[in-house]
Design a protein around this nucleic acid. Structure first.
Lengths: 310, 310
DNA sequence: ATCAATACTTGACTCAGGCAAATAATAAAT
DNA sequence: ATTTATTATTTGCCTGAGTCAAGTATTGAT
């Protein structure tokens, strides 16, 4: 079975599962004298505030006639107020009355209790996982084709765990993509270990691209001397490549160099990092040195790139 | 709003979203002359193979009378065969006939088309993400309270990324739980950097507890000399504490020491690591030294624990 | 043999919800 | 200005999904 079919099966499976789950989670509706559709309508009016019947039929995809009767019932029960539009006498604006709002919040409270009952025995982390997974599904499935779904945030401070996570990313990605062995990870370890005691925000800066607080890209500028800076630890997680993130981060890094009046910035890389090198060149770096090395279980050319800033 | 309420809201939100989604995904059912419940029953019989009406009411939580009529309809349509149990004349075993199976596979095909329509514009990765998120939800929500949901696996080899991830875990957890600053993470970096070049499986061993290939606990034995070993990097992720994992890992580590004929094993820790110390003591370690230090942004007692192995 | 429990069936009913025609207001066309 | 088409909502009419309770047949326990 190919990957696409597997996905379809997973989704179908989940549908079946969640059909049952929704049944469980909507039991409170059974206790009220409302139908699921009625609750959905009430909720939607509560959310939209001022809306018309037409909007509701479009959003909830329910029959207009059915809705009309529902609204009549709501009005009769005192949950809903209607106000004819002055601009268009055919339409009525719908509002929940105080009683309607009370009803709705009562329903939400019951729903909360129900959800708590189902998720109560889960650990905090599991609950977070479930909520996170739900968000993922919703975001991806509601995204319009081509729309940017996840927003990437860049931060500049170094928090506990960041260094380790960066080493992890380097170790894992370079092993996967370039076949580097564990020595490389030890080397990265060393670079961070040597850097940390000298870290000074006045001359050094980290750029950490994060998605949901998880690092997906990095680059750093370290002041080597008064006039020379080194660019290090440039890395973009494969899932977030091709979105201009790398370019943006390099731009920010170079802007920082200029801001701090460095005259030159350089970086070390290897011939294997073709994608990164393309970005370096694009940003204005030029190759200034090359040396053949056998390192990290690979045969490679260590290269130096430099860039004059002013 | 506290975290728990946020989770509840996320779930409620998802319910609303997925209620609509299920509507979309079940449109093919409208085209057939079957109700959602009928399809669910057909599917369930198809899955279970040989089942009884009672089982179905229990699984799908539908009314017995309704089910009875449904089954009659299915039988009449030639989709279902019933066979009275010889052991219990009240029950009938239900099977789909060839026609029933055909009907079901036709429905699944339509459903597949529908899912493809919705997921078609997504990238392969996004589809994987959706499917993965769905699995997460299902797994977590179907787990029984107290049930071991995730199985923890212990491995002994060091893969690319492991070192970085361990540093990450140390940096993050010690910062959160003991307030250590970044210097601590640098220190951990150093310990790994110094260890890696000397790593020798004949005398050293890592123990990495993983869940879905993600490290959730660790401990290591490093041979200091022919007769003395050091236990290091003992850590259990908070979500996986209190399950006996720490105890088990220490036991394995000590067993390894004995296997390699070390006479003594020692470890360094600080007075703040009370939970770990309790486990150390329980495993047979005794405190042999203590020194006051100001380190990692904290005031603490560095302690040494030793254990004679034979 | 009797009685209670279990597995399913049948009868009687309700009400959610769909469809189409009706009504009423507005916009467009002549 | 009048007709015609369109849109927003309402009403009448209907079906069938699903519920509840009583009924039948079988089994197990005493």
């Amino acid at each position: 079975m190919d990957a696409a079919s597997a996905v379809v099966n997973d989704i179908r499976r989940f549908n079946r599962f969640y059909t049952g789950m929704i049944g469980l989670l909507n039991q409170h509706i059974l206790e009220s004298n409302l139908s699921l559709s009625e609750v959905r309508v009430l909720y939607e009016i509560g959310q939209l505030g001022k809306c018309t019947a037409g909007q509701l039929t479009a959003i909830l995809k329910i029959d207009g006639g059915y809705l009309s009767r529902m609204l009549k019932k709501f009005e009769k029960s005192g949950w809903l107020n209607r106000q004819q539009s002055t601009a268009d006498g055919r339409t009525f604006f719908l509002y929940l009355s105080a009683a309607g709002k009370r009803l709705l919040s009562g329903l939400e409270e019951k729903s909360t209790r129900e959800i708590r009952q189902i998720t109560g025995h889960l650990s905090g982390k599991q609950q977070q996982q479930v909520a996170g997974a739900m968000k993922t599904i919703e975001e991806i499935l509601t995204a319009q084709p081509g729309e940017q779904t996840t927003d990437i945030h860049i931060r500049y401070n170094l928090l506990p765990g960041d260094v380790g996570y960066l080493i992890y990313l380097h170790g894992q990605l370079y092993a996967k993509e370039s076949g580097y062995n564990l020595e490389f990870e030890a080397y990265v370890c060393k670079t961070f270990y040597e850097f940390l005691p000298t870290y000074n925000p006045a001359k050094d800066r980290m750029f950490l691209a994060t998605v949901n607080d998880q690092i997906v890209g990095s680059v750093a500028i370290l002041g080597s001397s008064r006039h020379l800076a080194q660019l290090r630890w440039f890395l973009i997680h494969p899932d977030y490549r091709g979105k201009g993130l790398g370019k943006k981060m390099l731009q920010e890094a170079i802007a920082f160099c200029k801001e701090k009046n460095y005259q030159k910035v350089y970086l070390m890389t290897t011939s294997m990092q073709e994608t990164a090198i393309a970005l370096y060149k694009n940003a204005g770096f030029r190759k200034t040195g090359e040396k053949y090395l056998q390192l990290w279980g690979q045969q490679l050319y260590e290269q130096r790139y430099d860039m004059d800033l002013f």
